[in-house]
Simulated scan of single mutants.
Amino acid sequence: MSTIDRGALLPHLGNTLWDATIPELPNHYRGKVRDNYDLPDGRRIIVASDRLSAFDLILTAIPFKGQVLTQTARHWFERTADIVANHVLEYPDPNVVVCRRLRILPVEVVVRDYMAGTTSTSIWSMYKQGRREMYGVRFPDGLEENRKLPHTVVTPTTKADQGGHDEPVTPDEIVARGLLTAEQWRTVSETALALFARGRDLAARNGLILVDTKYEFGMDEAGTIMLADEIHTPDSSRYWMQATYEERVAAGQRPHSFDKDFVRTWVSQRCDPYKDPIPEIPAELVADTAAVYIQAYETITGQPFALPAEPEPVLERIRRNLTRFF
């Protein structure tokens, strides 16, 4: 469990990073949860906000969410740098990474160790419909939900444009469509498997099962393939708790995980979020979600999360730490 509970988080509810607009920085692009600034020298500043996105909307902001995701990724970037170079240059602030600007490859590499998932591109969704050939991999009959696969698989998808949906693709299709060359695909798929093996081994030491994860790769001006975006965060990866896994699966229950979908579930039970106004989200629900993110950070990294003694407005702190880039 987290060392920080709801009560400790309530005083911080008003101190979230909704808007990371910094007028002194150039070439601002705002994504759903990150704000990006491209510097003239080829560096990019990425600010992770606390915005929580669901149903194609920003529902609320979760205290420390941006910091948790940035620092969890930092933990993993530092522990996998011997496997592949990554885009990180420095961390001037807990919510900020300064990185190399890469040309992101048009294939998202998803690695899976278990028969799991609920989305249309998940192998369990397709398997229970009778599919046995998926992503260029042949799956045997008799596999069960939430059980380990015979071997770790790479299940790539195309990267959708804004508002689109990722689509399953096979390695042969990736090369035939010119998305990547055969050599590039070999490099990213082998690298992804090596990253996953490292993540699985280190997560197990902290009582976690790394179930599946996604990786994004990019290319610098010299053509070097590097790891980009994030790695093994609770938003990009599925983790289960080792201690209760066998008992719960044997009983037909879902394995324990970092359930961050409190807000999504609460909203969908009260309205049609695609048509109706979103009701005001209770402070206690926001605090509970923050506690789960912090628990995820502490469990994944094995490090305690330190709350600031005095809440400082997040944007003020970020601006102070980025002044030299103005």
Score class of each variant (00 low, 15 high):
residue 172 D to T: 13
residue 51 R to V: 00
residue 187 T to I: 06
residue 84 V to Q: 07
residue 237 S to H: 03
residue 246 E to W: 14
residue 119 T to H: 10
residue 50 D to Q: 04
residue 224 T to G: 11
residue 246 E to K: 12
residue 286 V to G: 10
residue 119 T to C: 09
residue 136 G to R: 13
residue 214 K to V: 09
residue 121 T to P: 14
residue 102 L to E: 00
residue 58 I to H: 09
residue 175 V to E: 06
residue 150 P to C: 10
residue 244 T to R: 07
residue 133 E to N: 14
residue 136 G to M: 13
residue 198 R to W: 03
residue 311 P to I: 11
residue 235 D to Y: 03
residue 315 L to E: 02
residue 236 S to L: 06
residue 147 R to C: 04
residue 197 A to P: 04
residue 305 F to M: 04
residue 315 L to S: 02
residue 264 R to D: 13
residue 154 V to P: 08
residue 73 A to V: 02
residue 125 S to I: 00
residue 174 I to L: 13
residue 157 T to N: 14
residue 270 R to L: 08
residue 179 L to D: 05
residue 73 A to M: 05
residue 225 I to S: 09
residue 150 P to D: 07
residue 56 D to W: 09
residue 47 V to A: 02
residue 204 A to L: 09
residue 183 E to V: 12
residue 149 L to A: 02
residue 127 Y to W: 08
residue 67 Q to R: 11
residue 277 P to W: 10
residue 190 E to F: 05
residue 111 V to W: 07
residue 109 V to I: 15
residue 132 R to A: 09
residue 133 E to F: 15
residue 106 P to E: 01
residue 267 V to K: 15
residue 129 Q to E: 10
residue 31 G to W: 15
residue 95 N to D: 01
residue 105 L to V: 04
residue 78 E to H: 14
residue 173 E to S: 13
residue 127 Y to K: 02
residue 108 E to K: 04
residue 287 A to W: 00
residue 248 R to I: 14
residue 304 P to G: 05
residue 141 D to A: 05
residue 322 L to C: 12
residue 134 M to K: 06
residue 261 D to N: 14
residue 306 A to P: 05
residue 60 T to S: 13
residue 321 N to W: 03
residue 230 E to G: 10
residue 134 M to E: 02
residue 140 P to G: 07
residue 280 E to I: 15
residue 263 V to N: 12
residue 27 N to K: 07
residue 115 M to Y: 01
residue 109 V to W: 07
residue 4 I to E: 00
residue 16 T to Q: 03
residue 230 E to L: 02
residue 201 D to C: 04
residue 11 P to E: 07
residue 240 W to C: 05
residue 127 Y to S: 06
residue 76 W to G: 01
residue 297 Y to H: 09
residue 311 P to V: 09
residue 311 P to A: 12
residue 308 P to I: 06
residue 224 T to L: 13
residue 295 Q to V: 03
residue 233 T to L: 02
residue 241 M to F: 15
residue 12 H to C: 09
residue 21 T to K: 11
residue 203 A to I: 01
residue 157 T to W: 11
residue 5 D to V: 07
residue 202 L to P: 00
residue 35 D to F: 15
residue 317 R to M: 14
residue 313 P to V: 08
residue 166 D to Q: 15
residue 94 P to S: 03
residue 235 D to Q: 00
residue 292 V to K: 08
residue 19 D to V: 04
residue 250 A to P: 00
residue 275 K to G: 10
residue 48 A to L: 00
residue 54 A to T: 02
residue 107 V to A: 03
residue 324 R to T: 13
residue 221 E to F: 12
residue 287 A to R: 11
residue 33 V to P: 08
residue 61 A to L: 01
residue 297 Y to P: 01
residue 113 D to H: 12
residue 35 D to M: 07
residue 2 S to Y: 00
residue 250 A to Y: 01
residue 249 V to D: 01
residue 83 I to R: 10
residue 10 L to E: 13
residue 135 Y to P: 07
residue 101 R to P: 05
residue 125 S to A: 13
residue 112 R to M: 05
residue 31 G to L: 15
residue 193 L to V: 11
residue 196 F to E: 04
residue 251 A to E: 10
residue 325 F to K: 13
residue 227 L to A: 01
residue 102 L to V: 02
residue 123 I to L: 11
residue 112 R to G: 11
residue 81 A to F: 15
residue 57 L to P: 11
residue 87 H to Y: 01
residue 56 D to K: 12
residue 221 E to H: 12
residue 248 R to Y: 10
residue 215 Y to P: 06
residue 63 P to E: 04
